[in-house]
Design a binder for these strands. Sequence first.
DNA 1: TATTGTTATACTCTATAACTATA
DNA 2: TATAGTTATAGAGTATAACAATA
Lengths: 146, 146
Amino acid sequence: MTDSPPDVLASRLGYLFKHAHARLLDVAGPAMAPFGIDGRELAVLAVLGAGAPLSQQEAAELLGVDRTTMVALVDELERKELVERHRSAADRRKNIVRLTEKGRRCLEGAGDARDAAERRFLEPLGESGAAGFVAALQILAGARPL
Amino acid sequence: MTDSPPDVLASRLGYLFKHAHARLLDVAGPAMAPFGIDGRELAVLAVLGAGAPLSQQEAAELLGVDRTTMVALVDELERKELVERHRSAADRRKNIVRLTEKGRRCLEGAGDARDAAERRFLEPLGESGAAGFVAALQILAGARPL
DNA sequence: TATTGTTATACTCTATAACTATA
DNA sequence: TATAGTTATAGAGTATAACAATA
């Protein structure tokens, strides 16, 4: 990553998104590493642990990834014994994906680590600056009604 | 892209960066398409058009891409007749990459189109909100001293 | 020896198409 | 016929290793 980019790039949103995201990964990646998962896997654990039981496809839709991508993601999480597939009794085409006890502990530990990493990442903005930034980002990401 | 993501995701910076960036591409991609280039190619034209003549490696460092990636990028821009390679007389290992007249016109037109697209993207934040957001993003991307 | 550009190669992430089993 | 999961495959984008020309 470039440390001091030229002016022609410093105002380009695409460049700024890419590099800000890369800096976030620099902080959050090592924070989650001790738990043996990365950010995408943590996001899967989070939606599975959030509330109602989900099928693979339902989880994929929530995360905005393809259902074929979800197959590999669940394969890996199952290999790590963090989730289990169960055929749905109501609709035997569906795989209900459940957190294991180990998965729940991992979600909790890695989630806390990632939250702390995000706070460190946002630190340069100050407390109110960080809150305003996240709110703006939620609007731009379409995660919040206008 | 998910339209209304669940709460467990709406506060995650990685998710927000990914989806905000995707929304930006939705707006900026079509805006640049009439000029036959994408955002990465426009970024190359921009650093080449900014000031001093650059070698491939120097341009690659400014953009934060690998020098092997730059080879393919310059190949494509040369095929479109937007840039020209010239062996440096001072150091014959180096390729100085220069904008052609066509490249300069493309930089100007596509640059304006992209600027307008970015303004539309930021519109929901209001004028001062947008300025604050970009300033914060520059800090987080390391594009601006703290 | 080190550096620039280049090629070949591989790896990650993602998407499309086709198959299976269920509905 | 349509859907959920799966597999195979292919396309970006990027990175590593090795080579030729040059320093």
